[in-house]
């Protein structure tokens, strides 16, 4: 799988600033505007940001969160970190404050008071770090799903070996070829076979070590429940 492409132009991004001390807003706003982006200051009431975090869009929004506020974001019942890039604003360098930034998924930080000269680097590393982490999470999720599907692959191999009188390598080759024809992963293909009871179409399939064609679906039809 290829690496995610590096995002380098931040024009039209909207930064949402969640901070108790709004002095950061001036330098952030000026620099973001030079980069073609903009800044919205999110009101903080009783230590909580009045922001609909799940409604944010990953291709447009990013969050600047002041770690000195503790955890000011409403993350919903499952406490899922925001699905947009988060850049922390660090004032007090204490473990409890920094831990909050980890919990909400910050991938970069800016020291307070915010220096305009540091903003481009924070955006570049923060947004691309977020994209890279999200791609890794997506790959992990895909691998987990495929791991769960391996049981059905083994089942399909055994079934085909039994029906066609072939060995496991040949059975695997047939399943792999058929899954590629249908543009499915082998796990998804075997899951479909198991779910629908469909026969594996192995006509013209793998050739055995003795040169015998393993295509047996015409002479070894078997009804499935």
């Amino acid at each position: 799988m290829t690496e995610p492409r590096v995002l380098q132009n931040f024009s039209s991004f909207v930064g949402h600033l969640v901070a108790s001390d709004l002095r950061a807003a001036d330098s952030l706003k000026a620099t973001l505007e030079r980069l073609g982006a903009s800044l919205v200051v999110v009101p903080v009431v009783d230590g909580r940001a009045t922001l609909d975090v799940p409604a944010l869009r990953d291709d447009r929004d990013l969050l600047f969160v002041d770690a000195d506020l503790g955890q000011p974001l409403e993350l919903g019942e499952i406490e899922r970190p925001p699905q947009v890039p988060v850049i922390g604003l660090v004032g007090v360098e204490a473990p409890s404050r920094l831990k909050t930034l980890i919990q909400i998924g910050a991938t970069a930080f800016l020291r307070k008071p915010v220096q305009g000269a540091a903003v481009y680097s924070a955006l570049f590393i923060g947004i691309n770090g977020f994209l890279r982490r999200r791609q890794l999470e997506s790959r992990l999720e895909d691998h987990e799903r495929r791991r769960r599907g391996r049981r059905l692959v083994i089942k399909a191999i055994l079934d085909l070996m039994q029906r066609a009188g072939i060995d496991d390598d040949q059975a695997y080759a047939i399943l792999r070829r058929e899954s590629m024809k249908q543009r499915l992963s082998i796990e998804d293909y075997c899951a479909t076979v198991a779910r629908t009871g469909r026969d594996v179409a192995f006509a013209g399939g793998a050739t055995g070590a003795d040169g015998r064609d393993a295509s047996l679906n015409q002479r070894n039809q078997r009804s499935r429940p």
Binding site: R5, V6, L7, Q8, N9, S11, R34, L35, G36, Y120
Partner: peptide, 14 residues
């Protein structure tokens, strides 16, 4: 346009 905001593609070339 020191950051090439108006002219640079959103994603870097491979």
């Amino acid at each position: 346009d020191p950051y090439l905001v108006q002219s640079m593609p959103r994603f870097a070339a491979p």
